[in-house]
Every structure is written in C-alpha cells, then in structure tokens.
Amino acid sequence: MPSPTSTPSVILVGVDFGVPHFDAGLEELGLLAQTAGYSVADRVTCKRRAPDPALFVGSGKAEEIKMLAQSTGAAEVLFDQSLSPAQQRNLERHLGLPVNDRTLLILEIFAQRARSHEGKLQVELARLQYLSTRLVRRWSHLERQSGGIGMRGGPGETQIELDRRMIGEAIKRTKDRLEKVKKQRATQRRQRERRDTYSISLVGYTNAGKSSIFNSLVKARAYAADQLFATLDTTTRQLYLGEAERSVSLSDTVGFIRDLPHGLVDAFAATLQEAADADLLLHVVDASNPAHPEQIASVMGVLKDIGADQVPQILVFNKLDAMDIANVPRVLSDSMELEGQSVPRIHVSAHTGEGIPALRAMLAERVLALKAGQGEMSPGPTPEIGNPVS
C-alpha cells in the first residue's frame, strides 16, 4: 500500500477479450489507482482471444511491459482483469516488479476507507479470502518446517501448510465476529419493523452521487467526494416527508462497481442486507457518464447476488448539471424499462438541488399509496420526453 508521503507510479494493463464493457482507455482502473494513492506512469492495452495460461498477456507483450516499466521507472504493474495465482507469480518473475490485479486494488481501497468496526471486519475477511487463494508458491519462505519444542506446526509441516491453516483460522474468527454483527443488525431491523418504519436504501455505481443525494434529502453531513468508494459504511437517518406527514428510514450504502470481487460481496453481506431488506431502493445513476447503461447492469447484477433485485426501485438519474446539453430531458420525471419492467425515473442534480423537491414528493406519494392500502404506486403515464437519457 502506498505511504502518504510517496506516490508510487504504476503501469496499467488491460486485455480486450471482446467483451462489451472493455474499458479501452482504462479510465476506471486509473481512477481506482489514483484513489488508492498511485500515479499512473503509462497504460497498455492489447487484444487476445483468450488469456495466456502462463503470463496472461503472452511473452511478447510481457516483454513490452517490462521495457516500458524500466523506461518510466514504474514501481508496480496493475491489471484490469483478475489474475490467477500462477499468472501473477510468473509475471512478477518476468517483470521483476510487483504485479497486482483489479481485485486486490479494490480490496486495498476498502482497507484504506473502512472506518467502522464492522467495515474493518468485512474488509479483513475479504482480504484473507483473497490471500487464501494466493498461497501456492507465492512466497520465498516455503521451506519445510523442522519439528520440535518451540516450533510452530507439526514435524515436517511445510510453511505453506502452516500459512494455509493460520489463514483458515483467521477467516473463521473473522466470520464469527461478523456473525455477531449480523445478529445485532437483525435485531435493529426487527425493532424498525415493530415501529412500522418504511425503509429506503440508496444504491448505485460508485461515484454516482449517492452520498450527495443522501445529504440533500436529510440535510446530513455524510462524507461525499468526487472519488470512487467515498462511502463504505452504511449511514441511516430519518427523513421527514411533509406531504405524507411521517418519517421514513433512509440508508446510504457502499457503491457497486464492475467485477466487484465476490469475496467483497460475501464479506459485505451484512451491510448490503440493508438494501435487500428495504421497502424501496433509490437506484442512483450518473446520467453524465456515457457508460451509465453498463453501470446500471453491474448494479443489477450485484442486487441479484444479494437477493435485492425484487425490491421496488426508483431510478434517480443524478448529475443533471453535468449532462451534455443535447441529452438534457425536457421533463424531469418519466419511466424507463429495466429488465423487462417499467420503472419510475427522475432526473436530479444533488449539486444544484434541481429535482430534489420532486424526488421528495415522489417518495411521499409512495408512502401515502402504501398507507391507503393501494399497494405499490404505479409509475403512471409516461410524459412526452424531448431527448431522454436511457
């Protein structure tokens, strides 16, 4: 992990295997690297039909990366795709530099940003699960242990076996501690249910502006910044809706990202459970980002993983002030099709406040419809739209 006083430079590497979401400019990986405290020395992309079993990019491209690293003075190489332990080991030997992938980079950011006891536990579990797959010949201390008094491990136990056992024990301890946190959260949810609290969770791709919208709605001071994963810990506040004459529970959750490591999805199950148990999801989208359709698909994939894909949604297209003028809609509220269903959508700007009162009114209408026993509110007729973003 980079120290606060230094900014190590890295080379970014991406391989196009023909998938639709390939980031040809490695923009997102570059943002992740900068968020983790690195500076980008150079970027390398190439096309392949399949990963090279040994070096992922093949020997020719690996040699090109090696020469580039020497000329730029890069301290590390970061891959946009996940590497197998063998590929990572082979690349490090060939390049003579540390090699890491997108998964570890995300884990590193989460480790830097976690503040709460629960968040730190979740990051530690994900890190341990990742390391448990990297043990095979990963370190130089894999000589066989000698048995005897004062030595850890039994006679003839290899260091790798000891490492595996120690990590396994650490994973079990961390899971046990997280299980206690889950039970505490479950108790809190039952208390909210007994109080007949209507719960709303903000979800969305990282840096879509969830925390900014959260602050705009509840006049809170939750940390918000123009960077990836600014918020890791769930924050819950009461939101009073004057039109409905009642308060609802509003939660700001961790942002999602493409290829979110499965270990993080599992480790953050307790936090993400807020979304699965919500009565309504505000799915925040960065409307100014040309890749927002792919980002919506990524969020929907994670929602399915945590069992929250059936929770009713309102799509909140944020950053109206940053949109291309040609794409700005004539009306703020409409609906769009999401996985075969018509979902209400509203355009807002958390920065200028435009559309926020209309969003509050939409939430109040939902609550009033529920109170009146009308079930879920229908999105209503779709207004005529001049140039919608969809």
Rank of each mutant, 00 (worst) to 15 (best):
P4S: 02
I11V: 15
L12K: 05
F17V: 09
F22Q: 06
Q34R: 15
D42G: 06
R43M: 11
T45N: 03
P51Y: 01
V57H: 04
S59W: 04
A62G: 04
E63C: 00
E64K: 03
L68T: 13
E76G: 04
F79D: 03
Q81T: 13
Q81S: 10
Q88N: 12
H94E: 15
P98M: 14
R102K: 05
L105A: 06
L105K: 06
E108G: 14
A114V: 10
H117M: 10
Q122M: 12
Q122L: 15
A126N: 11
W139H: 08
S140M: 15
R144A: 04
T158V: 05
T158I: 03
E161W: 02
R165A: 14
M166I: 14
G168A: 10
I171N: 03
I171T: 04
K180I: 14
V181N: 04
Q191F: 02
R192H: 10
I213S: 00
A220W: 15
A222Q: 05
Y223N: 02
D226M: 00
A230I: 03
D233Q: 08
T235H: 03
E243V: 02
E245V: 00
S251A: 12
V254W: 05
F256Q: 00
F256T: 06
H262L: 13
H262D: 15
L264S: 04
E274D: 15
A275I: 14
D277Q: 15
L281M: 13
Q295M: 15
Q295G: 03
Q295N: 13
G307V: 14
F317E: 01
N318C: 09
N327Q: 15
L332R: 10
E337R: 12
V343M: 05
I346C: 06
I346N: 07
S349N: 07
S349E: 05
A350D: 02
R360M: 01
M362Q: 10
R366W: 01
V367N: 00
G373E: 09
G373H: 07
E376F: 05
P379T: 03
I385H: 13
